[in-house]
Write a protein that binds this DNA or RNA. Structure first.
Length: 452
DNA sequence: TCTGGGGTCCTGATGCTA
DNA sequence: TCTGTAGCATCAGGACCC
């Protein structure tokens, strides 16, 4: 999907269509999750600090992500992919590989193109959004093709042309080559995929280590035999919070770690999992990050056990100077719990039950005391004016634009934050459905094989 | 007012055990 | 019984991805 989060926001808010939209954390330490193509013109891109984005594009709309909405749209799109093949490998909410051969939907260039074009039309019909399709003989090449296809396009890499196409591209084009590896290779005089291939396997292994060296050499020769895997087991579950202001108080650090442990266990249990290894993550005031872990005798999903382990790990960490981030994770997962953990839990169990927290609970320092919160971009309903979304709030006022996905751009009104006529609302569907129409979007989808 | 959150995979050091 | 070693598990950190 193209600029997925920002596109969803533009589809649901007519006044933002064609405008620069930036979705991400709005706190002092937020970063950009997605920028619309209009915002990218100003140099705004993913992972950029929000403060920098605001300097570059002061007039853009800044919105917080609405993951529940994105997830529901993602499910519609994945449903469409599922009609193409039993082998669909989601990479994220907005990306997936599809093995079209396994679905019997494509057998040559023409049928593949047809399938890809139909898929793009179906995505647009069902979600109102644009998606790009990369068609190729391997996952690596399909991924590169889809990057080239964005936005709103389709690119097919013909068999036999792969090496000629890859050769002149930057090594950074290859999946798995990030800033560090890119720098490493540049210092060795390797800039392009051709130069990577010329360097030879032994040299790449020497430079980058065994696994990365072999893998990169194979990719440079356009060799990628990795299959599309539809079922992937979760390997770890973790939660972390970055605090608006560094925490110096050791007692407070302990409280936050317990809270994170509970949230982590909550997620673990929600997934029906338990785990053996507890991991504590601490990012200090100077951005240095350290992790400490402890492996138990058996898997647990007991909040008291995880809390205790996290507290023990915290004991071994120096937090003087302050911490900006804390995280708790569990790995070594199993889909059962070992009841035989009495010895470990004996001292901890009296700590009481899991403190359930709502998913979007704000960290305490972000929470305005006893005031209703109106996050930018979230939907609201007003008794007199109908459906709208929060354009901004502060100083006891909230500004709302009244419009819906299929209305023209709407008018703006400002209310007191405690106005009883105003209440939070569920997002509306991006594409209005006619009576009797299928909700799952599978009607008419018969797409074809494309790799993604 | 630089630098989120949730993941995966790899590497090297270290210690245990057969 | 002692010693050397191969292999494995654990731990910490780093790179990468979306």
């Amino acid at each position: 999907m193209d600029a997925f989060f920002a596109s969803v926001e533009q589809a649901s808010k007519p006044s933002l269509r064609g405008k620069a939209v930036v979705v991400g954390g709005l706190g002092p330490r937020g970063v950009v999750a997605t920028a619309s193509y209009e915002a990218r013109v100003f140099g705004v891109h993913s992972a950029m600090p929000m403060a920098q984005a605001r300097r570059l594009a002061p007039n853009a709309a800044y919105l917080v992500p609405r993951f529940a909405l994105y997830r529901s749209i993602s499910e519609q799109v994945m449903g469409l992919l599922g009609t193409l093949s039993p082998l669909v490998e989601p990479l994220s909410l907005d990306e997936a590989f599809v093995d079209l051969e396994a679905g019997g939907r494509a057998w040559d260039e023409r049928s593949a193109r047809l399938a890809g074009a139909k898929l793009r039309a179906d995505i647009r019909a069902v979600t109102g959004l644009t998606g790009s399709v990369g068609l190729a003989a391997s996952k690596m090449l399909a991924k590169i093709a889809s990057e080239q296809a964005k936005p709103d396009g389709l690119v097919l890499i013909e068999p036999g042309t792969e090496r000629a196409l890859l050769g002149p591209l930057s090594v950074r084009t290859l999946p798995g080559v990030g800033p560090a590896t890119g720098d490493h290779l540049r210092r060795a005089g390797i800039h392009t995929v051709d130069e990577l291939a010329e360097a030879g396997e032994d040299e790449l292994v020497r430079l980058l280590g065994k696994a990365h060296g072999h893998a990169l050499y194979a990719m440079a020769l356009a060799r990628d035999e990795r299959p599309v895997v539809s079922e992937r087991e979760t390997k770890s579950v973790s939660v972390e919070d970055t605090y608006d202001v560094d925490i110096h108080d050791r007692v407070r650090v302990g409280t936050e770690v317990r809270r994170l442990a509970d949230r982590c266990v909550s997620r673990l249990r929600g997934a029906g999992l338990s785990g053996r290894t507890i991991v504590l993550k601490v990012r200090r005031y100077d951005f240095s990050t350290l992790t400490r872990s402890e492996t138990l005798r058996g898997p647990t999903d007991d909040p008291a056990v995880v809390r205790e382990a996290a507290a023990r790990l915290l004991d071994s960490v120096d937090t003087t100077g302050g911490v900006r981030l804390l995280g708790v994770g569990v790995s070594g997962l199993a889909d059962y719990t070992q009841e035989d953990l009495f010895a470990q839990a004996a001292g901890a169990r009296e700590d009481g039950p899991l403190l359930e927290e709502p998913e979007a609970a704000p960290a305490p320092e972000r929470q305005a005391p006893a005031e209703r919160r109106w996050p930018a971009g979230h939907d609201v309903r007003h008794a007199a004016y109908g459906h709208g979304w929060v354009q901004g709030s502060g100083l006891g006022r909230v500004t709302v634009r009244f419009e819906t996905p299929d209305s023209p751009p709407g008018r703006v009104k400002t209310f007191r934050t405690d106005d009883p006529a105003l209440e939070p609302a569920e997002p509306l569907p991006l594409v209005s459905r006619r009576p009797g129409e299928a909700q799952d979007g599978s009607a008419g989808a018969g797409g074809g094989p494309s790799r993604r």
